[in-house]
Design a protein around this nucleic acid. Sequence first.
DNA 1: CTTTAGCACTCGTCGTAATTGAGTGCTAAC
DNA 2: GTTAGCACTCAATTACGACGAGTGCTAAAG
Lengths: 341, 341
Amino acid sequence: MLSERQRMILNAIIDDYIRSAEPVGSRSISKRGDVSFSPATIRNEMADLEEMGLLEQPHTSAGRIPSIKGYRYYVDHLVTLGEIGDREARMIRSFFAEKMTHWEGIIEHAATVLSQMTNYTSIVLGPEMFNTALKHFQVIPLTDNSAVAIIVTNTGHVEHRTISIPEGITMDDMTKIVNLLNDKLAGVPFYKVKSVLHSEIAKELSRYVERFEEILALLEQTIDEKQDPKVFLSGASNMLTQPEFKDVDKAKSILGMLEATPLVVQLFQSNPGGIQVKIGTENAHEAINHCSLITATYSFDGQSLGTIGILGPTRMEYAKVIGLLDYLSKDIVQLMSRWHK
Amino acid sequence: MLSERQRMILNAIIDDYIRSAEPVGSRSISKRGDVSFSPATIRNEMADLEEMGLLEQPHTSAGRIPSIKGYRYYVDHLVTLGEIGDREARMIRSFFAEKMTHWEGIIEHAATVLSQMTNYTSIVLGPEMFNTALKHFQVIPLTDNSAVAIIVTNTGHVEHRTISIPEGITMDDMTKIVNLLNDKLAGVPFYKVKSVLHSEIAKELSRYVERFEEILALLEQTIDEKQDPKVFLSGASNMLTQPEFKDVDKAKSILGMLEATPLVVQLFQSNPGGIQVKIGTENAHEAINHCSLITATYSFDGQSLGTIGILGPTRMEYAKVIGLLDYLSKDIVQLMSRWHK
DNA sequence: CTTTAGCACTCGTCGTAATTGAGTGCTAAC
DNA sequence: GTTAGCACTCAATTACGACGAGTGCTAAAG
């Protein structure tokens, strides 16, 4: 348990360090308005805080910097969400003024705006198909032996793939099957599609169409294909602005990791919804052990539409970022429901 | 005009510099097997080459490095396309073994593979809709007042947008219009869509549907919407491997530029098809004045399907990259035609 | 006339040493 | 419990000399 004074000092140190990126000493804390004790007193408290593991010293004769545990305490107990600044308010307003054409577009654009507002990197994860339901399925012939298959989900998400059509299958057969699938599969969530296909549809289909297995297999594969969620990065170069990554090797390992979609997806796992903060080594990947990741999941009507994450150094402006993310998330949900009212 | 010996020396210097990233001196050239003259002789030639603007000296008492003009000469006259290495051959083979589901996917994946093979950054530009023709247009209702509009081009490219449906428009009217549009617009190239809409369709439509203008305006806007081509980056972090960008600021200005889609699109303008090399200041943007960009446009059936660019330092392995790009481009075209045979 | 050996000169790089100063911990006084 | 004073530590900065790679020029050799 921390005393009131200790909390003030911890707060002051973290604030200072977030601003300056340099170890902060007792003197500079003492000179701030809010903690009016002498450097010596503050030094004593600082030693205590260090013993508790909330602060650390890069070397003797340097000031203190917050430890992971220190940041954790700060985020959990100390941070007060800042007001949205003028500049931010303007950016958000113009964000909502733009015309949006896809779900993904909204989230992506939000991420771009966020990375500009914060000077950190933002990461967007597309929606998981898993929980959504099929709305419409269609095959559009392209040439004699190729076609485009299009899948629309109830959230308005669209997937498409080019498929090649086996020799001897007529477009007519294809259409029959696609129609039947639409009848039977509309509204079925994707995780059930496979079983419904086999239990209800296969038999019925056999009456209408010859060689139905072949076509069905093709379509099943088309609908069911697992794929990594789309990952969209914005402001990755902002990472290079941070003094902690002035060392190219560190920067490279982070940027390199961000380019590997599956690794990024891992970072976002265990997402209980709402806003979540992962600090330093709390993150799933070693490359960002000196970073913090703040994530927000946007859902509408109970279905996750995507996740936005802001990645910065552990010394990141938690108050600002959490505030923005929170604010924006409410606005986005509102926008979506107005759109879908 | 260069003498045979000068060309050999220039070639040797550039090769060396590409390998080592360090200014190369007369001695080290002389010690290579292929140019057996004394350092003094080579120094004389080097001074001449410098006078011609093909080489430059970072400072007195350093070796020479190639100038932009030097690289240009090298690329235009000296470079001999290397054979594809074992490792590369294997990667390309496994690339073609994977199952592809969209056009874009092929090009994107090719870019990923290229960036891994070369350790440079690869940039993919999606196809220009402009030249393609409409294959199919469809509107799929989502809720009472929203729908997904889907556009399929004759190249198998799919675009989609969510639109909101004005109060009082029935799905029935919508369907009628969409059907008519499909009849009339199928095969019409996009740059003509707008005029065809107005000249041929508007009048006919007025017979069927009330409030047709409103719907038509909506759909026109949907189909005609200009948008920047998709830009896809791969291996951007490879940039940080290059010793010339160990300075974080330089790296940041490059990566920052790569994140601005319109700027990247500019870089790719003036693309006559085939393989093109832009060296240093020949590039459209200052941020990559120390980079070279090698681009290849992939077309099939006369229509551009996308462009791949490889971005590296001016000191880049031209022979290897041009060779790979050339090789891959032929394979991709072949794959596409087999797919569409 | 071309090529090459020899040599003085330039200038960036590297390693070492000296200096500086921010910050601490401890002790003793308030 | 708080604070002033002081000795001590250690990273960062600066200064300096040695080193060496590489050049340009001159004069001799082919």
